[in-house]
Design a protein around this nucleic acid. Structure first.
Lengths: 285, 285
DNA sequence: AGCTCTTATGAATCATTGA
DNA sequence: GTCAATGATTCATAAGAGC
Protein backbone atom coordinates (compact mmCIF):
# COMPACT_ATOMS: atom_id res chain seq x y z
CA UNK A 1 0.00 0.00 0.00
CA UNK A 2 1.61 3.22 -1.17
CA UNK A 3 0.45 6.76 -0.75
CA UNK A 4 2.30 9.68 -2.25
CA UNK A 5 2.09 13.24 -0.99
CA UNK A 6 3.33 15.99 -3.28
CA UNK A 7 4.06 19.53 -2.24
CA UNK A 8 2.36 22.33 -4.13
CA UNK A 9 5.16 24.79 -4.55
CA UNK A 10 8.16 22.69 -3.70
CA UNK A 11 9.32 19.87 -5.84
CA UNK A 12 9.75 17.25 -3.18
CA UNK A 13 7.43 14.36 -2.46
CA UNK A 14 6.74 11.92 0.31
CA UNK A 15 6.00 8.23 -0.20
CA UNK A 16 4.44 6.27 2.61
CA UNK A 17 4.32 2.50 2.34
CA UNK A 18 2.14 0.50 4.68
CA UNK A 19 3.39 -3.03 5.15
CA UNK A 20 6.34 -5.19 6.12
CA UNK A 21 9.62 -3.49 5.32
CA UNK A 22 11.09 -6.63 3.84
CA UNK A 23 8.28 -6.76 1.26
CA UNK A 24 7.70 -3.08 0.66
CA UNK A 25 11.37 -2.40 0.01
CA UNK A 26 11.20 -4.66 -3.06
CA UNK A 27 8.98 -2.08 -4.71
CA UNK A 28 11.69 0.57 -4.56
CA UNK A 29 14.01 0.88 -7.56
CA UNK A 30 17.68 0.03 -7.12
CA UNK A 31 20.16 2.82 -6.36
CA UNK A 32 17.41 5.35 -5.75
CA UNK A 33 18.10 6.36 -2.14
CA UNK A 34 20.76 8.79 -0.93
CA UNK A 35 20.40 8.19 2.79
CA UNK A 36 18.74 5.62 5.03
CA UNK A 37 18.17 6.78 8.60
CA UNK A 38 16.28 4.43 10.81
CA UNK A 39 15.76 3.09 14.26
CA UNK A 40 14.43 -0.45 13.96
CA UNK A 41 12.60 -2.08 16.82
CA UNK A 42 15.24 -3.21 19.28
CA UNK A 43 15.28 -6.83 20.32
CA UNK A 44 12.48 -7.59 22.76
CA UNK A 45 11.43 -3.92 22.81
CA UNK A 46 8.11 -2.39 21.84
CA UNK A 47 6.46 -5.75 22.00
CA UNK A 48 3.03 -4.22 22.06
CA UNK A 49 3.61 -2.56 18.70
CA UNK A 50 5.96 -4.70 16.69
CA UNK A 51 5.71 -8.03 18.41
CA UNK A 52 9.28 -8.06 19.62
CA UNK A 53 12.21 -9.91 18.13
CA UNK A 54 14.19 -12.39 20.16
CA UNK A 55 17.85 -11.34 20.50
CA UNK A 56 18.98 -14.70 19.18
CA UNK A 57 16.92 -14.27 16.04
CA UNK A 58 17.62 -10.60 15.50
CA UNK A 59 20.37 -10.99 12.91
CA UNK A 60 18.34 -13.45 10.86
CA UNK A 61 15.37 -11.14 11.05
CA UNK A 62 17.30 -8.09 9.92
CA UNK A 63 19.42 -9.52 7.11
CA UNK A 64 16.68 -9.61 4.40
CA UNK A 65 15.99 -5.96 5.15
CA UNK A 66 19.68 -5.12 5.18
CA UNK A 67 20.10 -6.73 1.76
CA UNK A 68 17.23 -4.72 0.30
CA UNK A 69 18.61 -1.51 1.77
CA UNK A 70 21.92 -2.30 0.12
CA UNK A 71 20.16 -2.65 -3.19
CA UNK A 72 18.12 0.55 -3.06
CA UNK A 73 20.97 2.72 -1.79
CA UNK A 74 23.02 4.68 -4.28
CA UNK A 75 26.73 3.83 -4.42
CA UNK A 76 27.51 7.21 -2.88
CA UNK A 77 24.78 6.87 -0.26
CA UNK A 78 24.92 6.20 3.46
CA UNK A 79 22.99 4.00 5.90
CA UNK A 80 22.65 5.22 9.50
CA UNK A 81 21.40 2.58 11.94
CA UNK A 82 20.33 3.64 15.44
CA UNK A 83 20.46 0.70 17.82
CA UNK A 84 21.49 -0.37 21.30
CA UNK A 85 21.73 -3.82 22.83
CA UNK A 86 19.77 -4.51 25.98
CA UNK A 87 20.87 -6.30 29.12
CA UNK A 88 19.93 -9.97 29.33
CA UNK A 89 20.55 -11.75 32.63
CA UNK A 90 23.19 -9.29 33.75
CA UNK A 91 25.08 -9.18 30.46
CA UNK A 92 24.96 -6.97 27.40
CA UNK A 93 23.59 -8.84 24.39
CA UNK A 94 25.94 -9.38 21.49
CA UNK A 95 23.47 -9.26 18.65
CA UNK A 96 24.51 -5.79 17.53
CA UNK A 97 28.09 -6.94 17.09
CA UNK A 98 26.93 -10.02 15.24
CA UNK A 99 24.78 -7.76 13.08
CA UNK A 100 27.79 -5.67 12.08
CA UNK A 101 29.90 -8.72 11.31
CA UNK A 102 27.14 -10.26 9.20
CA UNK A 103 26.44 -7.06 7.29
CA UNK A 104 30.11 -6.79 6.41
CA UNK A 105 29.96 -10.29 4.97
CA UNK A 106 27.08 -9.14 2.78
CA UNK A 107 29.07 -6.28 1.31
CA UNK A 108 28.49 -3.34 3.65
CA UNK A 109 31.41 -1.21 4.81
CA UNK A 110 31.23 -0.34 8.51
CA UNK A 111 32.57 3.15 8.13
CA UNK A 112 32.01 4.67 11.54
CA UNK A 113 30.22 4.41 14.86
CA UNK A 114 28.79 7.65 16.23
CA UNK A 115 27.74 7.87 19.86
CA UNK A 116 24.44 9.44 20.80
CA UNK A 117 24.80 10.63 24.36
CA UNK A 118 21.28 10.81 25.81
CA UNK A 119 21.55 13.51 28.41
CA UNK A 120 18.18 12.76 29.96
CA UNK A 121 18.31 9.04 30.07
CA UNK A 122 15.85 6.83 31.86
CA UNK A 123 16.19 6.92 35.63
CA UNK A 124 16.78 3.99 37.86
CA UNK A 125 19.18 2.41 40.28
CA UNK A 126 20.54 -1.10 40.38
CA UNK A 127 23.11 -2.81 42.54
CA UNK A 128 25.63 -3.47 39.78
CA UNK A 129 24.79 -1.14 36.94
CA UNK A 130 24.43 2.56 36.18
CA UNK A 131 21.87 4.22 33.97
CA UNK A 132 22.32 3.61 30.25
CA UNK A 133 22.92 7.02 28.69
CA UNK A 134 24.08 6.24 25.15
CA UNK A 135 23.09 4.54 21.94
CA UNK A 136 24.95 3.50 18.84
CA UNK A 137 24.61 5.27 15.49
CA UNK A 138 26.27 2.89 13.06
CA UNK A 139 27.31 4.25 9.69
CA UNK A 140 27.43 1.84 6.77
CA UNK A 141 28.41 2.55 3.17
CA UNK A 142 28.62 0.69 -0.11
CA UNK A 143 31.99 2.12 -1.07
CA UNK A 144 34.80 4.16 0.45
CA UNK A 145 33.83 7.26 -1.49
CA UNK A 146 30.47 8.60 -0.41
CA UNK A 147 28.77 11.99 -0.27
CA UNK A 148 29.47 13.97 2.89
CA UNK A 149 28.80 17.67 3.37
CA UNK A 150 30.72 18.37 6.56
CA UNK A 151 30.36 22.14 6.44
CA UNK A 152 26.60 21.78 6.84
CA UNK A 153 26.93 20.60 10.41
CA UNK A 154 29.78 22.80 11.59
CA UNK A 155 29.35 24.17 15.08
CA UNK A 156 30.31 27.65 16.27
CA UNK A 157 33.38 27.97 18.40
CA UNK A 158 35.25 30.57 20.35
CA UNK A 159 34.14 33.39 22.60
CA UNK A 160 30.65 33.57 21.24
CA UNK A 161 29.28 30.95 23.55
CA UNK A 162 30.77 32.42 26.68
CA UNK A 163 29.65 36.00 26.15
CA UNK A 164 26.26 35.14 24.79
CA UNK A 165 25.34 32.39 27.16
CA UNK A 166 26.03 34.45 30.26
CA UNK A 167 22.84 36.35 29.68
CA UNK A 168 20.68 33.32 29.23
CA UNK A 169 18.96 31.33 31.92
CA UNK A 170 20.34 28.00 32.97
CA UNK A 171 17.54 26.32 31.11
CA UNK A 172 18.26 28.23 27.94
CA UNK A 173 21.95 27.65 28.36
CA UNK A 174 21.41 23.96 28.45
CA UNK A 175 18.96 24.14 25.62
CA UNK A 176 21.27 26.22 23.49
CA UNK A 177 24.30 24.14 24.24
CA UNK A 178 22.49 21.02 23.28
CA UNK A 179 21.52 22.56 19.99
CA UNK A 180 25.00 23.84 19.40
CA UNK A 181 26.30 20.39 20.10
CA UNK A 182 24.05 18.99 17.46
CA UNK A 183 24.83 21.77 15.05
CA UNK A 184 21.49 23.53 15.08
CA UNK A 185 21.02 26.80 16.88
CA UNK A 186 18.20 29.26 16.64
CA UNK A 187 19.97 32.00 14.76
CA UNK A 188 22.64 30.51 12.63
CA UNK A 189 22.99 33.77 10.74
CA UNK A 190 24.30 35.35 13.93
CA UNK A 191 27.23 33.02 13.87
CA UNK A 192 28.15 33.77 10.30
CA UNK A 193 31.15 35.90 11.05
CA UNK A 194 32.39 33.67 13.80
CA UNK A 195 34.81 30.84 13.55
CA UNK A 196 33.27 27.45 13.13
CA UNK A 197 34.60 24.04 13.89
CA UNK A 198 33.78 20.56 12.74
CA UNK A 199 31.93 18.37 15.21
CA UNK A 200 33.19 15.04 16.47
CA UNK A 201 31.59 11.62 16.39
CA UNK A 202 29.86 12.14 19.74
CA UNK A 203 26.40 13.75 19.62
CA UNK A 204 24.84 15.26 22.72
CA UNK A 205 21.08 15.30 22.47
CA UNK A 206 18.19 14.92 24.86
CA UNK A 207 15.32 12.61 24.15
CA UNK A 208 12.13 14.47 23.49
CA UNK A 209 9.00 14.36 25.58
CA UNK A 210 6.81 16.57 23.44
CA UNK A 211 5.02 13.95 21.39
CA UNK A 212 2.73 12.50 23.95
CA UNK A 213 0.58 10.41 21.68
CA UNK A 214 3.29 8.39 20.02
CA UNK A 215 6.73 7.56 21.23
CA UNK A 216 9.28 9.05 18.90
CA UNK A 217 12.34 6.88 18.55
CA UNK A 218 14.66 9.83 18.51
CA UNK A 219 14.55 13.63 18.67
CA UNK A 220 14.25 15.61 15.46
CA UNK A 221 17.76 16.94 15.72
CA UNK A 222 19.15 13.44 15.29
CA UNK A 223 17.90 12.70 11.75
CA UNK A 224 18.32 16.40 10.99
CA UNK A 225 22.03 16.18 11.68
CA UNK A 226 22.55 13.17 9.43
CA UNK A 227 20.29 14.44 6.65
CA UNK A 228 22.27 17.67 6.48
CA UNK A 229 25.53 15.80 6.67
CA UNK A 230 24.90 13.15 4.01
CA UNK A 231 22.37 14.69 1.58
CA UNK A 232 21.65 17.87 -0.30
CA UNK A 233 18.36 19.42 -1.38
CA UNK A 234 16.39 17.23 -3.77
CA UNK A 235 17.99 14.02 -2.54
CA UNK A 236 15.90 11.13 -1.22
CA UNK A 237 15.82 9.90 2.39
CA UNK A 238 14.37 6.53 3.44
CA UNK A 239 13.20 5.32 6.83
CA UNK A 240 12.08 1.66 6.64
CA UNK A 241 10.82 1.79 10.24
CA UNK A 242 9.03 5.10 10.07
CA UNK A 243 7.18 5.02 13.39
CA UNK A 244 5.84 8.45 14.20
CA UNK A 245 7.57 9.83 11.12
CA UNK A 246 10.25 12.05 12.64
CA UNK A 247 12.70 11.31 9.86
CA UNK A 248 10.14 12.08 7.16
CA UNK A 249 9.09 15.39 8.68
CA UNK A 250 12.64 16.57 8.99
CA UNK A 251 13.58 15.40 5.51
CA UNK A 252 10.65 17.30 4.06
CA UNK A 253 11.42 20.45 6.01
CA UNK A 254 14.94 20.32 4.60
CA UNK A 255 13.56 19.93 1.06
CA UNK A 256 14.57 16.32 0.61
CA UNK A 257 12.28 13.68 -0.84
CA UNK A 258 11.18 11.19 1.79
CA UNK A 259 10.18 7.54 1.73
CA UNK A 260 8.72 5.87 4.80
CA UNK A 261 7.60 2.33 5.56
CA UNK A 262 5.74 1.04 8.58
CA UNK A 263 3.83 -2.10 9.37
CA UNK A 264 1.49 -0.26 11.74
CA UNK A 265 -1.41 1.21 9.82
CA UNK A 266 -2.16 3.82 12.46
CA UNK A 267 1.33 5.26 12.14
CA UNK A 268 1.00 5.51 8.37
CA UNK A 269 -2.36 7.22 8.64
CA UNK A 270 -1.12 9.59 11.30
CA UNK A 271 1.88 10.66 9.26
CA UNK A 272 -0.24 11.07 6.14
CA UNK A 273 -2.71 13.13 8.09
CA UNK A 274 -0.19 15.38 9.75
CA UNK A 275 1.65 16.05 6.52
CA UNK A 276 -1.51 16.37 4.47
CA UNK A 277 -3.17 18.91 6.68
CA UNK A 278 -0.31 21.32 6.30
CA UNK A 279 0.55 21.99 2.72
CA UNK A 280 0.31 18.93 0.61
CA UNK A 281 -1.92 17.34 -1.94
CA UNK A 282 -2.57 13.68 -1.60
CA UNK A 283 -2.28 11.32 -4.53
CA UNK A 284 -2.71 7.62 -4.37
CA UNK A 285 -0.59 5.35 -6.48
CA UNK B 1 61.91 -9.58 36.95
CA UNK B 2 59.95 -8.33 39.94
CA UNK B 3 60.55 -5.36 42.15
CA UNK B 4 58.41 -4.63 45.17
CA UNK B 5 58.02 -1.20 46.74
CA UNK B 6 56.60 -1.03 50.23
CA UNK B 7 55.30 2.05 51.94
CA UNK B 8 56.73 2.93 55.34
CA UNK B 9 53.64 3.95 57.21
CA UNK B 10 50.88 2.64 55.01
CA UNK B 11 50.30 -1.01 54.51
CA UNK B 12 50.04 -1.06 50.74
CA UNK B 13 52.69 -2.25 48.33
CA UNK B 14 53.53 -1.95 44.68
CA UNK B 15 54.82 -4.80 42.54
CA UNK B 16 56.43 -4.00 39.24
CA UNK B 17 57.10 -6.84 36.83
CA UNK B 18 59.38 -6.30 33.86
CA UNK B 19 58.62 -8.65 31.02
CA UNK B 20 55.95 -9.99 28.70
CA UNK B 21 52.53 -9.82 30.30
CA UNK B 22 51.67 -13.31 29.12
CA UNK B 23 54.63 -14.74 31.01
CA UNK B 24 54.70 -12.44 34.03
CA UNK B 25 51.04 -13.01 34.80
CA UNK B 26 51.79 -16.68 35.43
CA UNK B 27 53.72 -15.65 38.52
CA UNK B 28 50.66 -14.09 40.12
CA UNK B 29 48.56 -16.31 42.38
CA UNK B 30 45.02 -17.19 41.31
CA UNK B 31 42.11 -15.10 42.61
CA UNK B 32 44.42 -12.44 44.03
CA UNK B 33 43.31 -9.35 42.10
CA UNK B 34 40.23 -7.22 42.79
CA UNK B 35 40.39 -5.03 39.71
CA UNK B 36 42.21 -5.04 36.40
CA UNK B 37 42.33 -1.66 34.64
CA UNK B 38 44.38 -1.47 31.51
CA UNK B 39 44.80 0.07 28.13
CA UNK B 40 46.63 -2.46 25.98
CA UNK B 41 48.53 -1.41 22.88
CA UNK B 42 45.92 -0.96 20.21
CA UNK B 43 46.38 -2.84 17.01
CA UNK B 44 49.06 -1.27 14.83
CA UNK B 45 49.38 1.61 17.28
CA UNK B 46 52.51 2.57 19.18
CA UNK B 47 54.60 0.52 16.80
CA UNK B 48 57.76 2.20 17.93
CA UNK B 49 57.24 0.97 21.46
CA UNK B 50 55.50 -2.35 21.35
CA UNK B 51 56.14 -3.51 17.82
CA UNK B 52 52.52 -3.25 16.79
CA UNK B 53 49.99 -6.02 16.54
CA UNK B 54 48.22 -6.70 13.27
CA UNK B 55 44.45 -6.22 13.61
CA UNK B 56 43.87 -9.68 12.18
CA UNK B 57 46.08 -11.24 14.83
CA UNK B 58 44.91 -9.11 17.72
CA UNK B 59 42.44 -11.58 19.17
CA UNK B 60 44.94 -14.44 19.02
CA UNK B 61 47.54 -12.24 20.65
CA UNK B 62 45.25 -11.14 23.47
CA UNK B 63 43.59 -14.43 24.41
CA UNK B 64 46.50 -15.93 26.41
CA UNK B 65 46.60 -12.72 28.43
CA UNK B 66 42.84 -12.68 28.82
CA UNK B 67 42.93 -16.24 30.14
CA UNK B 68 45.56 -15.36 32.71
CA UNK B 69 43.62 -12.30 33.82
CA UNK B 70 40.60 -14.53 34.31
CA UNK B 71 42.67 -16.79 36.53
CA UNK B 72 44.21 -14.10 38.74
CA UNK B 73 40.97 -12.15 39.19
CA UNK B 74 38.87 -12.81 42.27
CA UNK B 75 35.33 -14.10 41.59
CA UNK B 76 33.96 -10.77 42.79
CA UNK B 77 36.51 -8.79 40.79
CA UNK B 78 36.17 -6.71 37.63
CA UNK B 79 38.20 -6.27 34.45
CA UNK B 80 38.07 -2.88 32.73
CA UNK B 81 39.49 -2.85 29.22
CA UNK B 82 40.10 0.51 27.54
CA UNK B 83 40.21 0.02 23.79
CA UNK B 84 39.10 1.55 20.49
CA UNK B 85 39.31 0.09 17.05
CA UNK B 86 41.25 2.03 14.47
CA UNK B 87 40.28 2.82 10.91
CA UNK B 88 41.74 0.49 8.28
CA UNK B 89 41.24 1.44 4.63
CA UNK B 90 38.21 3.56 5.37
CA UNK B 91 36.51 1.08 7.66
CA UNK B 92 36.41 0.55 11.41
CA UNK B 93 38.21 -2.64 12.32
CA UNK B 94 36.17 -5.38 13.89
CA UNK B 95 38.77 -6.88 16.18
CA UNK B 96 37.25 -5.36 19.29
CA UNK B 97 33.94 -7.05 18.60
CA UNK B 98 35.69 -10.31 17.85
CA UNK B 99 37.59 -9.89 21.10
CA UNK B 100 34.39 -9.58 23.09
CA UNK B 101 32.82 -12.58 21.41
CA UNK B 102 35.91 -14.72 21.99
CA UNK B 103 36.29 -13.66 25.62
CA UNK B 104 32.68 -14.63 26.27
CA UNK B 105 33.44 -18.09 24.87
CA UNK B 106 36.28 -18.33 27.38
CA UNK B 107 34.00 -17.63 30.34
CA UNK B 108 34.00 -13.85 30.71
CA UNK B 109 30.72 -12.04 31.22
CA UNK B 110 30.48 -8.84 29.16
CA UNK B 111 28.67 -6.85 31.80
CA UNK B 112 28.72 -3.34 30.40
CA UNK B 113 30.26 -0.95 27.92
CA UNK B 114 31.08 2.48 29.28
CA UNK B 115 31.79 5.32 26.92
CA UNK B 116 34.72 7.62 27.58
CA UNK B 117 33.90 10.90 25.87
CA UNK B 118 37.21 12.65 25.28
CA UNK B 119 36.28 16.28 25.45
CA UNK B 120 39.54 17.48 23.96
CA UNK B 121 40.12 14.82 21.41
CA UNK B 122 42.87 14.74 18.86
CA UNK B 123 42.45 17.51 16.31
CA UNK B 124 42.32 16.89 12.61
CA UNK B 125 40.16 16.91 9.52
CA UNK B 126 39.40 14.25 6.99
CA UNK B 127 37.16 14.31 3.91
CA UNK B 128 34.81 11.57 5.05
CA UNK B 129 35.24 11.37 8.80
CA UNK B 130 35.02 13.54 11.89
CA UNK B 131 37.34 13.56 14.86
CA UNK B 132 37.13 10.47 17.00
CA UNK B 133 36.08 11.71 20.43
CA UNK B 134 35.28 8.50 22.30
CA UNK B 135 36.73 5.21 23.41
CA UNK B 136 35.28 2.01 24.76
CA UNK B 137 35.64 0.98 28.39
CA UNK B 138 34.56 -2.63 28.39
CA UNK B 139 33.60 -4.17 31.70
CA UNK B 140 34.07 -7.91 32.11
CA UNK B 141 33.27 -10.04 35.14
CA UNK B 142 33.58 -13.64 36.21
CA UNK B 143 30.11 -13.82 37.72
CA UNK B 144 26.95 -11.77 37.94
CA UNK B 145 27.63 -10.79 41.51
CA UNK B 146 30.66 -8.58 41.87
CA UNK B 147 31.82 -5.82 44.18
CA UNK B 148 30.60 -2.35 43.27
CA UNK B 149 30.70 0.71 45.51
CA UNK B 150 28.45 3.09 43.61
CA UNK B 151 28.25 5.74 46.30
CA UNK B 152 31.98 6.37 45.93
CA UNK B 153 31.56 7.92 42.49
CA UNK B 154 28.37 9.91 42.98
CA UNK B 155 28.33 13.29 41.30
CA UNK B 156 26.76 16.61 42.32
CA UNK B 157 23.18 16.98 41.20
CA UNK B 158 21.91 19.60 38.80
CA UNK B 159 20.38 22.84 39.99
CA UNK B 160 16.89 21.52 39.76
CA UNK B 161 17.51 19.43 42.83
CA UNK B 162 18.07 22.39 45.13
CA UNK B 163 14.59 23.73 44.70
CA UNK B 164 13.10 20.31 44.72
CA UNK B 165 14.79 19.26 47.91
CA UNK B 166 13.31 22.13 49.89
CA UNK B 167 10.04 20.36 49.79
CA UNK B 168 9.06 17.18 48.12
CA UNK B 169 6.98 17.90 45.06
CA UNK B 170 3.34 16.89 44.86
CA UNK B 171 4.30 14.36 42.25
CA UNK B 172 6.57 12.59 44.64
CA UNK B 173 3.99 12.84 47.35
CA UNK B 174 1.38 11.29 45.12
CA UNK B 175 3.72 8.64 43.92
CA UNK B 176 4.59 7.93 47.51
CA UNK B 177 1.00 7.75 48.63
CA UNK B 178 0.12 5.36 45.87
CA UNK B 179 2.99 3.16 46.82
CA UNK B 180 2.06 3.31 50.46
CA UNK B 181 -1.48 2.45 49.53
CA UNK B 182 -0.26 -0.59 47.69
CA UNK B 183 1.84 -1.61 50.60
CA UNK B 184 5.17 -0.26 49.42
CA UNK B 185 6.42 2.92 51.01
CA UNK B 186 9.34 4.85 49.64
CA UNK B 187 12.06 5.82 52.03
CA UNK B 188 11.70 9.58 51.86
CA UNK B 189 14.68 10.10 54.11
CA UNK B 190 16.84 8.98 51.23
CA UNK B 191 15.79 12.09 49.36
CA UNK B 192 16.16 14.58 52.17
CA UNK B 193 19.35 16.62 52.04
CA UNK B 194 20.33 14.76 48.94
CA UNK B 195 22.72 16.66 46.71
CA UNK B 196 24.36 13.92 44.74
CA UNK B 197 23.23 11.59 42.03
CA UNK B 198 24.54 8.38 40.57
CA UNK B 199 26.43 8.78 37.31
CA UNK B 200 25.55 7.09 34.02
CA UNK B 201 27.65 4.89 31.79
CA UNK B 202 29.02 7.87 29.85
CA UNK B 203 32.17 9.44 31.29
CA UNK B 204 33.21 12.96 30.37
CA UNK B 205 36.91 13.40 30.89
CA UNK B 206 39.57 15.40 29.14
CA UNK B 207 42.78 13.76 28.04
CA UNK B 208 45.84 14.92 29.92
CA UNK B 209 49.05 16.04 28.38
CA UNK B 210 51.21 16.39 31.46
CA UNK B 211 53.57 13.53 30.76
CA UNK B 212 55.44 14.61 27.70
CA UNK B 213 58.11 11.96 27.60
CA UNK B 214 55.86 8.97 27.76
CA UNK B 215 52.49 8.55 26.18
CA UNK B 216 50.00 8.23 28.99
CA UNK B 217 47.22 5.98 27.90
CA UNK B 218 44.57 7.80 29.88
CA UNK B 219 44.15 10.63 32.38
CA UNK B 220 44.39 9.90 36.08
CA UNK B 221 40.70 10.48 36.59
CA UNK B 222 39.86 7.48 34.45
CA UNK B 223 41.48 4.72 36.54
CA UNK B 224 40.58 6.73 39.63
CA UNK B 225 36.89 6.45 38.80
CA UNK B 226 37.01 2.69 38.30
CA UNK B 227 39.28 2.06 41.29
CA UNK B 228 36.86 3.92 43.54
CA UNK B 229 33.91 2.17 41.98
CA UNK B 230 35.15 -1.42 42.08
CA UNK B 231 37.60 -1.61 45.01
CA UNK B 232 38.00 -0.53 48.60
CA UNK B 233 41.10 0.33 50.60
CA UNK B 234 43.54 -2.54 50.88
CA UNK B 235 42.34 -4.21 47.67
CA UNK B 236 44.71 -5.01 44.84
CA UNK B 237 44.69 -3.37 41.39
CA UNK B 238 46.51 -4.80 38.36
CA UNK B 239 47.58 -3.13 35.13
CA UNK B 240 49.21 -5.68 32.81
CA UNK B 241 50.19 -2.92 30.38
CA UNK B 242 51.50 -0.41 32.86
CA UNK B 243 53.09 2.12 30.53
CA UNK B 244 53.87 5.30 32.38
CA UNK B 245 52.17 3.90 35.47
CA UNK B 246 49.10 6.10 35.79
CA UNK B 247 46.98 3.26 37.16
CA UNK B 248 49.62 2.34 39.75
CA UNK B 249 50.06 5.90 41.00
CA UNK B 250 46.34 6.39 41.43
CA UNK B 251 45.86 3.02 43.09
CA UNK B 252 48.59 3.82 45.57
CA UNK B 253 47.23 7.26 46.32
CA UNK B 254 43.89 5.63 47.06
CA UNK B 255 45.57 3.12 49.42
CA UNK B 256 45.12 0.12 47.18
CA UNK B 257 47.88 -2.38 46.49
CA UNK B 258 49.11 -2.13 42.92
CA UNK B 259 50.64 -4.59 40.47
CA UNK B 260 52.09 -3.43 37.19
CA UNK B 261 53.65 -5.24 34.25
CA UNK B 262 55.47 -3.79 31.28
CA UNK B 263 57.76 -5.19 28.64
CA UNK B 264 59.61 -1.90 28.29
CA UNK B 265 62.42 -1.71 30.84
CA UNK B 266 62.57 2.06 30.78
CA UNK B 267 58.95 2.31 31.85
CA UNK B 268 59.52 -0.05 34.76
CA UNK B 269 62.58 1.89 35.89
CA UNK B 270 60.81 5.19 35.57
CA UNK B 271 57.84 4.09 37.62
CA UNK B 272 60.10 2.57 40.25
CA UNK B 273 62.11 5.75 40.37
CA UNK B 274 59.16 8.09 40.63
CA UNK B 275 57.49 6.05 43.33
CA UNK B 276 60.74 5.34 45.18
CA UNK B 277 61.83 8.93 45.39
CA UNK B 278 58.68 9.89 47.21
CA UNK B 279 58.03 7.73 50.18
CA UNK B 280 58.87 4.15 49.55
CA UNK B 281 61.51 1.61 50.37
CA UNK B 282 62.64 -0.65 47.63
CA UNK B 283 62.94 -4.37 48.06
CA UNK B 284 63.91 -6.84 45.41
CA UNK B 285 62.28 -10.21 45.27
C1' DA C 1 9.29 38.89 27.67
C1' DG C 2 12.14 36.83 31.69
C1' DC C 3 12.23 34.16 35.17
C1' DT C 4 10.69 30.51 38.67
C1' DC C 5 8.32 26.63 39.96
C1' DT C 6 5.57 22.48 38.85
C1' DT C 7 4.65 18.34 36.42
C1' DA C 8 4.93 14.48 33.26
C1' DT C 9 7.68 10.96 31.35
C1' DG C 10 11.10 8.45 28.62
C1' DA C 11 14.09 1.99 23.51
C1' DA C 12 15.72 0.99 31.56
C1' DT C 13 16.89 -2.81 34.81
C1' DC C 14 16.28 -5.90 38.68
C1' DA C 15 13.89 -8.72 42.19
C1' DT C 16 9.91 -10.94 43.14
C1' DT C 17 5.76 -13.31 42.26
C1' DG C 18 2.75 -16.39 39.76
C1' DA C 19 1.71 -19.78 36.06
C1' DG D 1 12.46 -26.06 37.28
C1' DT D 2 11.89 -22.07 33.48
C1' DC D 3 9.44 -18.21 31.74
C1' DA D 4 6.38 -14.21 31.76
C1' DA D 5 4.32 -10.41 34.21
C1' DT D 6 4.39 -6.95 37.89
C1' DG D 7 6.33 -3.55 41.30
C1' DA D 8 10.10 -0.55 42.73
C1' DT D 9 13.59 2.40 41.76
C1' DT D 10 14.64 7.62 40.36
C1' DC D 11 17.21 11.72 36.85
C1' DA D 12 17.31 15.25 33.15
C1' DT D 13 14.64 17.54 30.21
C1' DA D 14 10.48 20.24 28.03
C1' DA D 15 6.21 22.27 28.39
C1' DG D 16 3.04 24.87 30.89
C1' DA D 17 1.44 27.82 34.56
C1' DG D 18 2.16 31.85 37.41
C1' DC D 19 4.35 36.16 38.57
Amino acid sequence: MLKTLTTKNMKTKIDIHHGDSKEQLKQLPSASIDLVVTSPPYADQRKNVYGGINPNEYVDWFMPISDELFRVLKPTGTFILNIKEKVVSGERSTYVMELILEMRKRGWLWTEEFIWHKKNCYPGKWPNRFRDAWERLLQFNKQKKFNMYQEEVMVPMGDWAKTRLKKLSPTDKIRDISKVGSGFGKNISNWANRDKAYPSNVLHLATECNNKNHSAAFPESLPEWFIKLFTKEGDTVLDPFMGSGTTLFVANQLKRNAVGIDIVKEYCEMVEGQLGEKKYEKASA
